[in-house]
């Protein structure tokens, strides 16, 4: 247990905690926050966040964010760099715990239980709330073991047959099976970028999470690999709840049902994606998605 803090542990090396330093304080601009525009509630919430504040040391990165993440919906977080969208989704599986100076306050519940409660097993939490990162980060293991790793740790398979079944079905659901079925023993790192990212998605869904967090999952991929991942996101929506951070507005528009716009650590607007992209209610949202700043 102590040895494997999280199945995503090897990942921590190539994440960028440096991002936290870039978060600007609201004092830098004349932006005045007067409350989130739009309906923060989802019809059938899987995760609920209320009045979340996040600090990196002295610096506040997120201010009083309240937002529901609905079951079987894809919610996209958009906003300029340093607006806190990544910080926010990393609160949802306590990924921020790994940053020493990071303090989270407020309420974050998964299926009505606070994930910051004392009794919460973080490893268990991260199995239920999986995460896919910007850069594909397969373990330095075979394709098969990449997917099997989390399943073994969490003891989700009672025998070899079952394990194999989970691995194969995960690869299938991630749309990767046909491409790797003949080289399951090849190292995960030998795959192409797009395949590696889908391998990471397969690894995430292998442990049967309820929520999948995606932090710019396509920013390192070419358009075709991107289209595949987007297609996959749409299919995964049937069984999972997905929160995706993206810098591509078109991607947010394509894959999500709801869109949340963050600005300088505030949740400025949230609404139906089609409404946000045709007729946003807040001027800042409008400015951002029409390319007037950011």
């Amino acid at each position: 247990m102590q040895k494997s803090v999280s199945i995503e542990q090897p990942v921590m090396d190539n994440m960028q905690p440096a991002k936290s330093i870039m978060v600007q304080s609201s004092k830098d601009t004349d932006f005045e926050f007067t409350g989130t525009v739009g309906n923060i509630a989802a019809a059938n919430p899987r995760m609920v966040t209320r009045n979340v504040d996040v600090f990196y040391g002295e610096k506040q990165a997120i201010f009083d964010v309240s937002l529901d993440i609905g079951t079987n919906e894809v919610i996209a977080m958009i906003g300029p760099s340093g607006c806190g969208k990544s910080t926010f989704i990393r609160c949802l599986n306590r990924m921020n715990d790994t940053i020493e100076s990071c303090k989270v306050s407020g309420e974050i519940r998964l299926d009505d239980k606070s994930i910051y409660r004392k009794k919460q097993d973080v490893v268990q939490l991260r199995a239920r709330v999986g995460m896919v990162f910007q850069k594909p980060n397969p373990f330095p293991k075979s394709v098969y073991d990449n997917v099997a790793y989390g399943v073994r740790i969490h003891g989700l398979a009672s025998n070899k047959m079952e394990l194999e079944e989970i691995v194969v079905s995960s690869l299938r659901r991630a749309g990767l099976w046909d491409e790797v079925k003949d080289r399951l023993d090849a190292p995960g790192t030998s795959l192409s970028g797009g395949q590696q990212q889908r391998l990471c998605i397969a690894r995430t869904i292998a442990v049967n999470p309820e929520v999948i967090l995606m932090d710019e999952p396509c920013s390192a991929l070419d358009p075709i690999a991107t289209a595949r991942i987007e297609e996959l996101i749409d299919e995964l929506r049937e069984n999972y709840t997905i929160a995706i951070v993206t810098h591509s507005m078109q991607q947010a528009a394509r894959v999500s049902q709801r869109t949340a716009y963050f600005h300088l650590g505030y949740l400025v607007e949230v609404g139906e994606t089609s409404q946000v992209f045709t007729n946003p209610a807040h001027k800042l949202t409008e400015d951002y998605i029409t390319g007037r700043f950011g």
């Binding site: 528009a253 007729n279 946003p280 409008e286 029409t290």
Partner: peptide
């Protein structure tokens, strides 16, 4: 070329 959104799209 520009994929206009929101008011630009309108």
């Amino acid at each position: 070329l520009r994929q206009p959104a929101a008011s630009d799209l309108r």
